[in-house]
Each structure stands twice: as C-alpha cells, then as structure tokens.
Design a binder for these strands. Structure first.
Lengths: 199, 199
DNA sequence: TAAAACAAAACGAACGTTCATTCTGTTTGG
DNA sequence: CCAAACAGAATGAACGTTCGTTTTGTTTTA
C-alpha cells in the first residue's frame, strides 16, 4: 500500500481529512459513489473507519464535504473574475478559460463538479445547476443583456449559448472523446460563439 | 399495487418485457440505478424475479437492454431526419426540435439517454457521446463545414456550438431549472446560435 | 512537578441488513 | 413427454454503521 496522494485542493484541512477527501474524490470519479465502499476509502487514505465516521457522520457526509468544498472553491474563482473584469464578455470568457484550465489540471475535480449525478447520492443538495457558482455565471450574461452588450433575447437562452458549447466540450474532454487540450480550442470556440450574440 | 404503466416506447416487445423495461426506466430515472433493486422492478412491473433473470441475465442486463433500445430509437429518428432534409442547417435544426419535443413528451427517456452516467452502471458500453446517434449528429455539422454552409472552423468546436446550448437546455429542463417548455425557446436559441456560424 | 483524573479522538472487530443471484420446483407449449 | 418458460423461496456475500476499547492530549490536584 503506497502513501495516499495529497491534492492541493485540500491543503488547508488537517492532514487526514485531506487524505480522506482526496481519496474519496479519486475513487468516486474513477468507480462511482455506489461502487466505492467506505472501507475502500479508509484503506486507500490510510485512515480508520472510526476516523471517517467521527469526522463525516456517514458515507453521504464524505460526498457532501467534497461537494461543498469544491463549490466553495468555484465561488472563490468567480469572485476573482468578478473583481478583475467589468464587461459580460470579459467575464464569461474568463470563466470559460478558467474552467478549461481546471479541466486539464484537475480533471477529477471537474468531473465531480460538473459531470456527476449528485442527486443520486446527495438527494438533499441542490442540483449543481442551481448552485450559487452556476447562478452567478449565468447572471454575468443577464447583466450583459441589460447593458445592451449582448443582443436582446431570452436571458436564459443567451446563457445557454455562452456556456453550453464550453460545458459540452468539458464533458467530452473528460470522457476522452476530445483528445486535444481544451485551452487550445478556446479562441476558436469563443469567436464563433460570441458571433451570434453581438448586437 | 396498481397495474404497471405501459410506455409506447416498448410496444413491439412482448408484454412483460415491455412492463419490465418501462418500470426499470421509471425507477432508474427516479431513484437511480443503484438505489433501485431488482425486487423493486419485479414488484412494480408485476413480473417474477425468475422472469427477469431468464430474460435479462442480470441487473446490468436490464440497463443494457434499455440503453440499446433507446439508442436504436434515436437512430431511427435520425434516419428519418437525414432522409427528410438535405442541408446541415435544416438537419441540425430538426435534430434539436426532435430532442426538445422528446424532452417534453418523454422526459424519462431523455433523462436516461442524455443525463445518466452510464459508465457507472454500464462500464462496458461506450460513453453516450461516442454512441452512433451522437456521432451522426456531429457528422451533420462536419458536412456543413465541408460544403461551406458553415464558416471554416474546427469541426468539433462547430458541433459543440450547434448542439451545446440545446443539450444544456435539455439538462436544465430535466432538472426543473427551466420551467418553460423547450419548444417555446427553440427559435430564439436557433437564430442566435446559428448567427455565429454563418459564413 | 508528578501523578491522577478527565476528555476527546481514533480504532477496528462485529453486527444486522440489504440485495443480486441461484436453485428447486411447477407450469406451459409443441 | 420433453424442453423451455416461469415462479418465488433460499442463499450468501458485501457493505454501511455501531460501539466497546485504546490511545493521546489536557487539566486538575497534591
């Protein structure tokens, strides 16, 4: 048994909590929540069953902790983008670039956030699309319509056009259908997406 | 126990096979594959455990039968579209309209096809994005680029732009984030999507 | 300061339940 | 009469969770 890998995503947490969550993220994305046993996680993370139940309450608690931690991380990224850029165009471009980079650098994180069916194993959490991070992403587009930066149209439709292609590409990249790093395709995507939205 | 509902999707199958698959589709989409037991399916479908194992081999076999049956249905729809329209624009519009209608009329079918993480419970089936139906959808766009109907660009990116927004809308509709019937938003979506692709 | 008392954290064997699958017996169709 | 189809009780492995015990750390007392 080799020592568990430590992800930079959980650096601020106590060592064994971080080990547990890193391992859980890895196993959940590789085998799925229901095919991963708590004993699996304990063994690979080199922590005891008791430790897990002491700190996370139950199996769902592990997933819940992961979910909240990663969504909060997303929110920090969006905070930064919101502070750095003013226009809807710049902001949504920055969002997509950030998501593309994250997909390449931390595919498991991206997979858990965007691709997993949380409702199956976190029935009480909001659907990922309703989570604050995704609502804020959409609101950038809404503001772009109000400020006439984007052509007048249904705001939800506009948001789907802005992010739909990108999210689709992320899914295909995570499924290894796309073999090119996403950042390489970003400009091509962006030019042709925004072409339909300019007033 | 009320009689099981019969979906038109399995009409050509023997009665109890159809009942089994209809019930499985319903329970899989409502509770998820792993939270649905074979006994659940047998009880709701009013068939015996023996019947299920005689006809479907194992639990995965039920999901596999569903998957293949629904993908084949998709292929028939695409056949029809391919025969009825010639241009990439007409064809992909027809695809999206068909998918939107299906989402409203048979949300569970759509959910199972597009939204479920098949790799978790069908590890040997190809990812849904690699399945023939989705490959064919993309090839319509590829042909549109070759015939100069679509501006010159990376074909994969073009396909993501054409279908990405639509698929995103389907996901949000299935998650009840969008409360308007999708066909009502189709034209708005289409005009603004295609605006970025016209040469 | 040393030892005793207490508290919190960690451990992991054992338990009870769930559930996919098997098996044995029965019915049906040719 | 044979084979295929079907029924449903029985099986046993897997797994989430519990809980009595041990270890570690902190506070109190003499």
């Amino acid at each position: 048994m080799t020592a568990p890998v430590q992800s930079v995503f959980f650096n601020e947490l106590p060592l064994r909590n971080a080990q547990t969550l890193t391992t859980a993220l890895h196993l959940f994305t590789a085998k799925g929540f229901f095919k991963t046993s708590v004993h699996d996680i304990a063994e690979h993370a080199q922590v005891s069953i008791g430790f897990i139940y002491h700190h996370f309450k139950d199996k769902e608690g592990i997933a819940r902790a992961l979910y909240n931690h990663l969504l909060e991380h997303m929110n920090v990224l969006i905070d930064h983008i919101e502070a750095s850029f003013q226009t809807a165009k710049e902001r949504s471009y920055a969002i997509i670039r950030t998501l593309f980079d994250l997909t390449e650098k931390e595919p498991e994180v991206m997979q858990f956030i965007i691709h997993a069916r949380h409702k199956e194993f976190l029935p009480n959490e909001k659907s990922i699309c309703s989570a604050s991070a995704f609502v804020r992403m959409r609101s950038f587009v809404f503001q772009g319509i109000e400020s006439k930066e984007i052509r007048e149209m249904d705001p939800l439709v506009a948001a789907m056009i802005v992010y739909g292609g990108a999210i689709r590409m992320i899914c295909l990249r995570l499924d290894n259908v796309i073999e090119v790093p996403l950042p390489d395709m970003l400009d091509d995507l962006w030019v042709n997406t925004w072409g339909g939205l300019d007033p």
